[in-house]
Every structure is written in structure tokens, then in C-alpha cells.
Design a protein around this nucleic acid. Sequence first.
DNA 1: TCCTTTTCAGACCAATTGGTCCGGTGGCTT
DNA 2: AAGCCACCGGACCAATTGGTCTGAAAAGGA
Lengths: 218, 218
Amino acid sequence: MTSITPAAPIGNRAAASEARKQRIRDAALALFSQFGLRGASLDAIADQAGVSKTNLLYYFPSKEKLYVAVLQQILDTWLEPVRAIDAEQSPETAIGDYIRIKVELSRDHAQASRLFCLEMIQGAPLLREDLQSNLRLLVEEKSRVIEGWIARGSLRPVDPHHLIYLLWGTTQHYADFAVQIEAISGRTLADPAFFEATVENITRIVLGGLLPRTNADS
Amino acid sequence: MTSITPAAPIGNRAAASEARKQRIRDAALALFSQFGLRGASLDAIADQAGVSKTNLLYYFPSKEKLYVAVLQQILDTWLEPVRAIDAEQSPETAIGDYIRIKVELSRDHAQASRLFCLEMIQGAPLLREDLQSNLRLLVEEKSRVIEGWIARGSLRPVDPHHLIYLLWGTTQHYADFAVQIEAISGRTLADPAFFEATVENITRIVLGGLLPRTNADS
DNA sequence: TCCTTTTCAGACCAATTGGTCCGGTGGCTT
DNA sequence: AAGCCACCGGACCAATTGGTCTGAAAAGGA
């Protein structure tokens, strides 16, 4: 409790320990994201992490604690792009940037995206509080930014909530349904051309719309 | 094997039997969609269905068989709206109708949507074949319809695949992430006003786009 | 050096898992 | 009436589960 972690060198001990914990978290993410909290066994996680089950339980005192630890590490990463939305930017660049970053996340942290999705499907028993307070406030804040754009005339009228849901749903889809997408189009976000096409098409639909433009509407 | 099911009256016996099977399937859908294949126990399913575990295993010889039976019942329902897309329709009504039907599905069959999502996240080990053959062909067929619209000038250029993914992802989102949406906006698709707002906003964004219309582009 | 604290693993445990066995019960045909 | 057979449930089983206990290396400070 009163231990002062030595700042500079980080004793070999602590470093190795932290590395082990991270290996365990990574293994847990891989298995939890595939089989869920109840579906993944500690044996399998310990095995994949290359440590004994006892050792795993030494670092994380229970399965649920481990699960929460993994989730927590994800959450911040996930909301970061939302926080970055700024009223000073033009809606074009703000939304365009957001789409690109979210698709990058779907490419680079697909497992995290899937675990988050799993947790939501199950009713988010461990995150509900967080959602109702922090996330809600964040969304309200960004909604006002969007409403500002609309009032200023630089965005056509739309309910900010539904816009945010559409952006979330669309971008997450490329991580969570990667198997389906690969089965259908034979491509993956790992393919740079497909990645760019994804960003480009989503952006074009959301910003420009699908219907041809007549010069007779607002 | 050689039994000929009596067509008209359906003996009390067979009717009760079928009713039981359906109750089991419903219970299985509820629990599988929440905890996944490995996370849901046969005990819990039998309990929720109001039958003994032995009786459940009498109708469905193994857990996996039951799981597949439930999935199969979902698949057709799910692809129905895609099949309905028709080249003769205008893209406006075709896409508008599709969005409305999918949001209705998200409202009325949220559990089915979630189970489908779970299966995808896990890599769809039981559906992979189906995806690579049937679904792929269906998507290719509808892609050509969309390309026809574009060629005809009634739709702005877009990659049909990404358009389909966007529609899937957005509409599914309201079922799979219902908890999140409720935590943030306090509304549910069960609320008719919220349902209409959802359909309306998605349609407006996809068809009309967000950027204000200048009279200086295609 | 000695002693405390951290770190780690093998043996073990009670509970739960998917699934089987056996014995019944009630409807339907002959 | 009689017997066949679809139907159903309680007892049971081997395997796996999350988690504990005991005890020993391996540091690190004195």
C-alpha cells in the first residue's frame, strides 16, 4: 500500500510482472471476445497466455475482475474519437476524421470492438452505470456541437443522436461482422485498398447522400 | 421415418409436441442470444421452457443441434427484406422500404438479431458455408440492381457493397446495442415516436446526405 | 548473510456441465 | 383387451468449471 514505485529503472521484477499481466490481459481479450465471459475458461486463458491458472489468479483474483480489467482498458480507447469532435472544425472534416479513425479502430482493435459488442448484447451488466452517466453526458455534449452546425447552416437538419448511432453502427460493423464481410466480398480491412474504399464510401454516403442533386432544394 | 404426418386435424399428440418444441426453441433463443452457445446451459434453457432437461434432449438430441435449429429459424426471416429489393422500384422507395423493414425487425426480433450478431462475432463456425454461397450470391445480385440505378442516373455513384453494409450495420445497431441506446437517449424502439424518428433520420441521412446542397455539383 | 515479501505451481475441491440409463405412463392400433 | 410405442422424468455419470491450499523458489533490504 505504502510502496513507492521506483520511477526510473523499474526493477526487473516489476517489469516482468507487468509484462505477464499484459500477456494475460491480451489472452483474456482474445478468448472473451470470442466466447464471452461465461464461454471462456480460465484454463484456456492461462494456457494461451503461457502461464499457470494459479499464476493468473494471483494477478487477477477472480474471473470477473479479469473481465472488468480488460473492459476498462478498452473503454477509453473507444470513446477517444468521440471526444475529439470539436465545434471549431467544419462538420465535413470533423465527421470525415471521425469515420476514418473509427474504421482504423475496427481494423486495429477488432477483438476489443467485438468484446464491447458482446457486453452490449448481454445487457452490459458491468457497464450500465458508466453508460448512463459518462457516456450519456459525452453524447449530449457532442449533440450540442452538431446542433450548432445545423443552426449555423453548415449541416442539414438531423437528429444528432441518430447521426451518432449511425456512425457507430456502421463503423463497428466492419469489426464485428468481419467474417460476414470477408465471406461476401473476400476483402479485409487489412487490405489498404479496401480500407480506403470503406472510409471513402461511408463518408460519401453520410455527407453527400445517395440521391442525385437537383438545384431545387435546401 | 416413414411416418406420414396427418395433414388436417393434427392429432392432439403432435400438436402438443410441436408446441413444446417451439417453447424450447423460444427459451433457447432467449438464453443463447444473451450468453452465447457455451454460456447458456441446457439446465437453464429447459427450466425457462418449463420442461425437464431430459425432455429437451428428447426433442433436440444435443446442445449444438438445438443451437443450429434456432439459428436456422432466424436466417430466412433475416434475409427476406434483402430479397425484396427490386430493380423495378425507384431507389428511393426500395431503400426507404428496406430501412423501415429492418428497423421493424430490430424492434420485433431483437433477440434473433443479437444471436445472429453473436454467431458472427464468434466467426460463424456454423454458418460460414451458407454465407460464402447463398448470401454472397444474394448480395451480388442486389449489387447489380444498385449498379443499374447508378448507371441510370437515379443514384449517385457508390460501391453497392459498402452501401449494403452501412444499411445492415445501422439498422442492426438498434437491436444489438439497444441497452446503450436506451442508456443514452432513454428511448426504445417500442416507443412509436422513437421508431418513426429512427426510420426517418436514417433514411434522410442515407438518401439526402448531411452537407447542405449547393447548386454547383452533380 | 538472514529474513521478509513477492512470485509462482501442483494437488485438490465443490459445483456445474452436457449427456445417458432406466423405468414408467398414456394414447392408438389391432 | 392388450400390447406397442411415442413420450417423459428422476437418478446418475464423467468431464470441466472457478477457485483454494500448501509449499517452495526468488528476490531485496538489513
